[in-house]
Write a protein that binds this DNA or RNA. Structure first.
Lengths: 340, 340
DNA sequence: AAATTTTTGATGCACGTGCCTCAAAATGTG
DNA sequence: CACATTTTGAGGCACGTGCATCAAAAATTT
């Protein structure tokens, strides 16, 4: 019930507390033999450094920054809200959280922002930005300077270990599985609406979607992805066209994380009223849409979990601990009107 | 970026650190006027006690006990596994977790067990047991002795504030919604299999199930609940009978948290092979069953979340903090083979 | 006003770790 | 061997809070 302390360690290893300190904090000028002795004692006693006491001694405080895109609709607001909540919840652990807005389409400015952060005043950053060489480099240099970094929701291929977000392939496959099972018709076409197919996230969702549809529902065909580019007029035009030209549409998959515009347009078209429609992310809008039937199902990643997981990961990296993968795995959630 | 300390508080309130200490820890012999002064300063500075430092000073360690039923199959094992994991993950916070097995059907022995716990060596208990007057009383006395307590998965009506578990009504409703949508037939009967309808959990699931089925799928009828009482032979007999006598069964809802026995029996009956089947809880068995199609869907409460939520709640109570409800809300998860 | 009680202040140690200084011991070099 | 260099030890202060003790001040009673 009592954890061994550095004092116990010193006694067990037959060295002084000063030497234990040197080994624990990786300082210079200790003979390999002594290092080994201490490490052996650590193992034998099952010593775990008391981080609370260490932080107290160092007056350490954590400041974590969430770098989020400047543009975005409700889902982004949800994230910001949960970051504010987390700030409160983690206050007892001496953790501060901040939001910084970055221009997602300007890798140069993102890199510049990351370069401006010093480990003096920022312990870690959660970055939501599409991958690009500049950003990847900036993240790398950030880590070299001793600032923890995790990709947040948007993935950076190079650092998949500490990634915080869902498996987008699984998300797409889940959407397909539900669409397939919800559609009563024997055969037909599925309309797929995305914001853009440039991002890895969209591509992976589409891959997962097609794979599952082909495997489990071969009588359903997915139409080519419509890209709205976040432009409302364009969205209206291409969606209306697609509906007019494809009378055999029996289901709709809104792949983008902001479902508001597409769903609003769809509910204005009488042809799509009774079609099975699936969207992404829980927001005030999608909640309402689930209730009144404009959406039949929502595939979501829990915004609160995302934020808290990012915080825990950043803290673990800062503390030089390993994270428990299992605990930090973000689930692909399925929302119906019954389980909100 | 720097939190105010008790020193700052003392200065701001115009009193000594000793008096601040008396007020913060509710000791006797302080004039009301002085108490008010200190409280005003707390508010003004936004003072938050540094729990890490306090625990260090008190050499406080947390020991939490999970009181789980003695009998149970895979789901219980999952819980135990996650408790072991949590033990590791929370070690940095000086938290120890233990499992104690109780006889769920003997309220007297449960009460005796709870009575044996003293706040000296146990900080809190998560209790998984059906409600009964004896247990309720024992929990009450436990709390009076300064031991935190939360109902765990099985609910205790009287203390719904700190309850850790899912909304079973919503779980039942979700099962109904999915069964309804997954069944391609126009009309038919749904078989419902439970371990026992004595527990509140089962009753609430059934209530939610019937409500949603009646509301959204009026052409489907739910048959009376079959109760297996955890007896394999009995289960085989009543399930087989029910299938023989109801050729119009088109879906099956296995309501109990241990789906193994019923599903095994069902897959031995040719009549039920292609029927839509929904079960509860993620276990090695249900995962396999999802993959090979014996189960179409699983409604689950995340065992890891349950455990960690219980630990955080118990810690918050012990620290005399309020918990963030939002964060601790356990979701009704929907699992398909695509989102495991 | 004196005696008593209540309230407050001053001070110091403890918790486990980080970090510093200075001296002592061990090791290596010519 | 003497000397320089590397490695280790001893000790102490700091972090923010809890918990003592003892004396001083203030309020209350007689």
């Amino acid at each position: 019930m009592m954890r061994p302390t550095t004092k116990d360690l010193a006694k067990a290893a037959g060295v002084s507390r000063a030497t234990v300190d040197r080994v624990l904090n990786g300082r210079e000028g200790v003979k390999q033999k002594t290092v080994d002795k201490v490490n052996a004692a650590i193992k034998e006693l099952g010593f775990v450094r008391n981080i609370q006491a260490a932080n107290l001694a160092k007056s350490k405080r954590y400041r974590f920054v969430f770098a989020l895109p400047r543009s975005g609709d409700e889902f982004l607001q949800e994230l910001v809200r949960h970051i504010k909540d987390a700030e409160e919840a983690f206050a007892v652990d001496q953790i501060w959280c901040d939001v910084a807005r970055i221009d997602e389409n300007d890798p140069h400015s993102i890199a510049a922002f990351l370069a401006s952060l010093s480990s003096e005043d920022v312990s870690g950053v959660a970055i939501m930005a599409p991958e690009s060489p500049q950003v990847r480099d900036a993240i790398f240099r950030l880590q070299e300077r001793g600032v923890a970094a995790v990709p947040f929701i948007s993935d950076q291929t190079t650092m998949d270990t500490d990634w915080v977000g869902i498996d987008n392939r699984a998300a797409g496959a889940t959407a397909a599985a539900l669409l397939g099972r919800f559609c009563k018709a024997e055969a037909g076409a599925i309309m797929v609406i995305a914001e853009s197919m440039q991002s890895r996230d969209s591509l992976e969702r589409r891959l997962g979607f097609d794979a599952e549809l082909g495997k489990s529902f071969p009588t359903l065909t997915a139409l080519p992805s419509l890209e709205t580019y976040g432009d409302e007029e364009r969205a209206e035009e291409i969606i209306t066209n697609m509906v007019k030209n494809n009378p055999d549409i029996i289901g709709i998959y809104v792949m983008s994380s902001e479902a508001r515009v597409p769903v609003r347009i769809l509910s204005g078209l009488p042809e799509t009223e009774k079609l099975v429609t699936i969207g992404h992310e829980r927001t005030p809008f999608t909640e309402r849409a689930l209730h009144d039937g404009r959406l039949d199902c929502v595939i979501a990643q829990n915004a609160g979990h995302l934020v808290r997981s990012a915080v825990r990961k950043l803290k673990a990296i800062t503390d030089q601990r390993s994270t428990h993968r299992q605990q930090e795995h973000i689930r692909v959630e399925i929302l119906l009107s019954t389980n909100l």
